[in-house]
Structure formats: C-alpha cells, structure tokens
C-alpha cells in the first residue's frame, strides 16, 4: 500500500544539513588536541587524532552526497536549492581544511617554534570557536524553516552571524600577530620550515574563513 499524499512531501534537507555541519565542526574541533599533541611532540597522539579527523571528514562527505541526492531539481523548497547546496559546500570545507592542515603537519613532522606555542594554540582554538558558532547558526535552521525565515528568529540568527564575524576578525588579528612573530625569528629557522609555517597559519585560518562563509550564506538565505 502506497499513498501519493505521503509522496508529495519530499525529504526535508534540514536534519541532514545540520548533521553535516555538526560532523564538520567535530572534525575542526579535533584540531585543538591535534596541535596540542604536536606542540608537546607527542606524535603518537597526533597520529591518532589525525585518524579521527580523516574519519569525520569522510563521514561529512557521505552526509554531503546524501543531502545532494535528496535535493532533486523538481523539489519545491522555501529557499533556493542552490543556496542550500552552496551552504553545504562551505560547511564541507571546514572539515576539509582540518584534514588538510593536520595532514600537512603530520607529513612533515612539523615543529611549532616554542616562542609562539601559546599564541599558536590560542589561534587554533579561536578558529575552532568560529566553527562552533557556525554550527550554532546552522542549529537554528529548523527554527528558521518553522518561522518562514522571518521575524524574531531571523534576527536571532543574524546576531549569531554577527558574533561569528567578530570571532573571524579575532583570528585575522591573531594571524597577523603570529606572522609578525614568526618574521622576527625567521633567521633562526630553516627556510623551508618557515614557508610551511606560514602555510599552516593560512590553512588553519581558513577554518574560521569557511565558518564565516557558512554564516554569510545563511544570512543571504534570510534576505530572500
């Protein structure tokens, strides 16, 4: 027994998008214990944490394709389908960056200069904060669907995104300061290591950048 009335209602993309964001955040969050282990020269732990990141990233990929396959072209949605797909791809990049940066560090057994250790870990954790805020905004997605992307709930999401912007600004400032400090000690380090150190800074900073993009995408959906 099948019924056409039930088939009219397509699978809502909300839950899987939220689950995807959560998985991407979990991957980014692992950067904190990962870099802690790297700084402490505990490579065994670093390898273990990296494996977890890879695992989470691939789960995010699965969820992503699951959302995509549930969003066929003939689906009528309250928001443009393209916006949702783009939101999804920004979320995905958060996990991708976590995987990339941890892979790079592990592959070269990179050492973080002791002078910048504390500030670097703070920088990592601020980037994770940004991903967490992005998750918080995406956690409001079901409420946004409930309220038709209007009114008080839309304002709440806008304020979360504003907080996210603030965190991303923090990471930019922190990154600039870290660059200056690396520049100051550049001569004491191997040139290749310095090059990669800058690269690590950038890739880590990308986590906050992508998180911010998620927030901005969500805002764009609100303005429709």
């Amino acid at each position: 027994m099948t019924s056409y009335l039930s088939k009219i209602f397509g699978t809502s993309p909300v839950d899987p998008i939220q689950e995807h964001m959560d998985t991407c955040f979990q991957a980014a969050k692992k950067l904190t214990p990962f870099f802690k282990a790297v700084v402490d020269d505990d490579w065994e732990t670093a390898i273990a944490v990296r494996a977890e990141i890879v695992e989470l990233e691939s789960r995010a990929d699965d969820l992503k394709s699951q959302v995509r396959s549930n969003l066929p072209k003939n689906l009528f949605l309250p928001v443009p389908r393209e916006d949702l797909l783009e939101l999804l791809s920004y979320q995905d990049k958060i996990a991708n960056r976590a995987k990339e940066v941890s892979g790079l560090v592990l592959g070269r057994k990179m050492k973080i200069p002791p002078e910048i250790k504390v500030d670097f870990l703070a920088y990592v954790s601020r980037n994770v904060d940004a991903a967490k805020k992005a998750r918080k905004s995406i956690r409001e997605l079901d409420e946004l669907f409930e309220t038709g992307f209007r009114g008080a709930e839309a304002k709440l999401v806008e304020s979360i995104v504003a907080e996210l912007d603030q965190i991303e600004n923090d990471t930019d400032d922190m990154q600039a300061k870290l660059r200056a400090r690396i520049f100051a000690i550049e001569d004491e380090l191997k040139p290749v290591d310095v090059m990669f150190l800058y690269r690590i800074l950038e890739l880590t900073g990308d986590v906050a950048d992508r998180a911010e993009s998620v927030g901005h995408r969500l805002e764009l959906i609100l303005s429709h």
Binding site: I8, G10, S12, V14, L75, F76, P78, F145, F149
Partner: peptide
C-alpha cells in the same frame, strides 16, 4: 483540494520540501 491547500502552505514557505513531480 487537500493537495491544493498543501501547495498553498508551500507557497507561503511553510513546507521544507514538496515533490512537484508527484503533485
């Protein structure tokens, strides 16, 4: 009539996904 009403709610951005093929 019920399907028409459901579509009306959908037009008001009330339903997260409507399968237009089935409609």
């Amino acid at each position: 009539t019920l399907v028409g009403a459901v579509l009306g709610v959908g037009m008001a951005r009330g339903i997260s996904a409507i399968n237009m093929d089935v409609v």
